[in-house]
Amino acid sequence: MLNPVFPHRHLLGIEGLTPAEINHLLDRSDYYVALNRAPEKMSDALRGRTIVNLFFENSTRTRTSFELAAKRLGANVINMQVESSSVAKGETLIDTAVTLNAMHPDVLVVRHPDSGAVKLLADKVNCGVVNGGDGSHEHPTQALLDALTIRRRKGKLNGLLVAICGDVLHSRVARSNFLLLLTMGARVRIIAPRTLIPSQVDRMGVEVFTDMHAGLKDVDIVMMLRVQNERMRGSFIPSVREYFHFFGLDRAKLAQAKPDALIMHPGPMNRGTEIDSDVADDFERSVIREQVELGVAVRMAVLEILALNNRDIQARKAAS
């Protein structure tokens, strides 16, 4: 039988999820946090299942996190790093999907540089698909692990004031995060120079700030985003120096936030570009390492629920 609270085949994005579904994923993640902190970290929930990590974009952290999650659940894991160059040589995304599908995986974890590519692939396969990040669209497991981190520290999401700062325009992390936080009843501000704010993003329910001091005023959570170096050379931002001056998180700007505000970053950090080392390493306020830890638990919960849903879908198909 399908998971009664989360009866989906795929996790392609946060958009469309209900608060109950999000809470269910977070509750299950909490369970795995406890397991991951125990000396014996193994579960056999997915014994005999096959998880494929299909990454069309370089990634160490996310892929490792998914790999560890799958292994702790007792599943077999295959990592496929598909260079975009070999795709350019001929094999299309759909060819790749059909090829992998023939190997009967239970869940595919897919990262791709193009928005919408993971959905395109999900439409062509029989197994469950987790979006491990598609273009500038969504990165749902990152948003879930961020939400879990906040919920465990603050006891709730509803009613919190969260600031998301940096390259919102190109960030799938930002999209998934504010979709999730708004769904759960938090207030979200985004803070960035105008060149990095997506068109009409205010219509999605966030408040837009271009002044870091004003935007950080009284917030409970400060979420920093990574700014890619290639966007720093005059196209979107004049220089690293100027960016850090106005939008880098340092003590002075952080003083605007609530005294117990948490500092978050999806990694990898550019120290001295978007965040001052002094702030990033503040072990009382910065929960950046905790995010990494909880990421494994969240991915365990997601893989478990989707793999089991997929087993039931296949069983139902076989029966009919």
Partner: peptide, 15 residues
């Protein structure tokens, strides 16, 4: 087209 839909879909917009 640039705007809310492009922003939601994470697609780059043509204003």
């Amino acid at each position: 087209n640039a705007g809310e839909i492009a922003t939601r879909m994470g697609l780059s917009g043509i204003p």
